[in-house]
Structure formats: C-alpha cells, structure tokens
Nucleic acid binder design. Structure first.
Lengths: 153, 153
DNA sequence: CTCTATGCAAAGCTTTTGCACGTTA
DNA sequence: TAACGTGCAAAAGCTTTGCATAGAG
C-alpha cells in the first residue's frame, strides 16, 4: 500500500503523527474505491471506530488534500466528494446528473484543448481537479422516453 | 433589456409575478456583469431595498436557475456563484485559484473532445455548466518567482 | 516527556422552511 | 380579491473551532 507509506512519510517530514483515525480514513478511501462524501467516510470509519468524531474526518481530509493525496470533486450536491489520488494519473471526472455515478476519463483527449487555452488566453488548467456534469449513457436510455429536462421545482 | 422581458414572460406563462425584489436581483446581476455569490447579490440588492431578506434572494436565484436565466458556477469557494445567462452562447468558465477571476471561454475548442466523449463512453456533457480551475496569465507571472503551491494549511 | 491529535461541545455559515401579512395581476 | 411573494424567525445542514485530555514519537 504505497499510498499509506507516502502519507506516513509526508507526516514524518512535518513532525505530524500517523494515528489510527488517519489510517482508518485512508483505509476507507481505499476500500470504497470511488469518491465519497465526508459523511459517508464518517459512517464507514465509525463502523471500525465508533468513537471517532466528524471533526476528525474533516481534519484528516483537509490534511490529505494538502498533501495532494486526495482529489476534491464537486458533484453538484451539497457535500464535496473526496477521492484517493493514489498514484493514478490525474483524470477528468464525469458526474451523472441523474444517477450520480462518477466516471474517470483519461485526460489525453483534452490535451489539444489545454494547449490551445494556454496559447490563447494563457490560462493553465489544474489537471488534478476537473469535473464535468452531464448524463451518462445508461441514464440517456432511460430518459429518452420522456422530456428529461424538467423546469419545475 | 431583453433578458428582463424574457423573465417577465416566463413568469407570466406560469402565473407567477414580477416583483420589485425579483427585478432588483436581475438588475444587480446585470450591473455586476460577472458571477456573484448570493451574499454579494444580497448586499447589493440591500443597497436599493434595505428590507429585502436573504431568503428572497435565494428563492429568486432558484427561480432564475429553473428558468435557465442564470448559470451556476462552482468556484471552489463555499458559496456557489450565479451568472446571468442572458442570451449568450454557453461558455466554459475558467476560475483562477489565486485571484478568483473568472474568464469565459468559447466552447468551440472543446467540441472535438465532447464528440469523442459521446462516441466512446456515451457521456453527454452539460454545456451550460462547465467550470475549470487553474491559474490565469496574470497570476502565473506573479507566482513565477516563488514556489506557488503552498502545502501548509 | 513533549507536542500533536482527538473528542466533545459549541459556534459559524450558508441555505431552507413555515407562517402571517403584503402585493401583484 | 384570489393567489402568489415577502419578511421574519427559526431550523436545518455542513463545517470549523476552542479546549482539556489522550496518545504518538
């Protein structure tokens, strides 16, 4: 679990400590294998350590974010989602508006666009945190029968 | 001010009403000319009508969102931002991590990418709401002298 | 042993909701 | 004058913070 060692080392470098709670958060992120909300992480960590506090979860996620060990995703819902960056290549997140599913897509296809942006408006996109919303293939099928876009509250 | 007429008509179609408060919100969004948070909008509307309540702002923004008259942007900050869609072509928002500035970029350059996505993973991106974060040209210059990325809280 | 991290409790912020009153069409 | 919208107040979520204690190194 190289990710955990990376975390351990980052902590050591700053004189910080590897606690069971921090290990648990990391472990849950691994086990879940997808983006999860602080609340979901809290519930899952609670299953192992019933005494853990929500604030510890938030503090740990903040730490992991600082260390770039997690990616923060805005799914359009209230709570942001946290996903283990692990050693994976940064990728684009596609969030389905209907079912909430999140797909990871390779950034290669975006390269021409990114280059263009950098050349024209000199804007450098943060590759570690791109999220787009839309409708996944499955939900397109389901939705094809009705109007799909509802304008009423 | 065609936007206001559009709003007026949408309201009429549903038997809803054009109140001074709703006009004020629309007016502020016009005047600001960029994405603004509910709080900023509240403050600006308050300058005109001191009695207006925050809840009215939220309700109005929600209404404008339903009518697709505003675009919601996640800038990475706590509050989402609202920008008048007006009659503009949907565009991509580039949020600068450093100065918070938001640039609008034409979606044309993304087209090959979007087509590719649709063909490969069958995902249809919502064009009205794409936001990416990064560093704008100005801030790149400023940052070039230091390490830029700060890992401490 | 020292200094960090945790749990607890409380507060802070943003957003939502119920309700009586005011206003629009 | 019949709905609809607003202000007010309160509540509801999510997140942060202060502090005494527990625990890692």
């Amino acid at each position: 679990m190289s990710c955990e060692n990376l975390f351990r080392e980052q902590l050591r470098q700053r004189g910080l400590r590897l606690t069971p709670q921090r290990e648990a958060v990391l472990s849950v992120l691994h086990a879940v294998g997808r983006a999860a909300s602080p609340e979901e992480i809290f519930v899952r960590v609670s299953a192992v350590d019933a005494a853990v506090d929500r604030s510890t979860i938030y503090r740990t996620l903040d730490l992991l974010d600082n260390f770039k060990l997690v990616t923060v995703i805005d799914s359009g819902e209230k709570q942001r989602l946290y996903e283990l960056s692990d050693r994976e290549i940064p990728h684009l997140h596609l969030v389905c508006r209907v079912c909430g599913k999140i797909m990871g897509v390779d950034l290669d296809v975006l390269q021409p666009f990114l280059t263009h942006l950098d050349e024209t408006v000199k804007f450098q996109i943060d590759l570690t945190n791109i999220t787009m919303q839309g409708i996944c293939g499955d939900c397109q099928k389901v939705a094809s029968g009705n109007n799909f876009i509802s304008t009423q509250s």
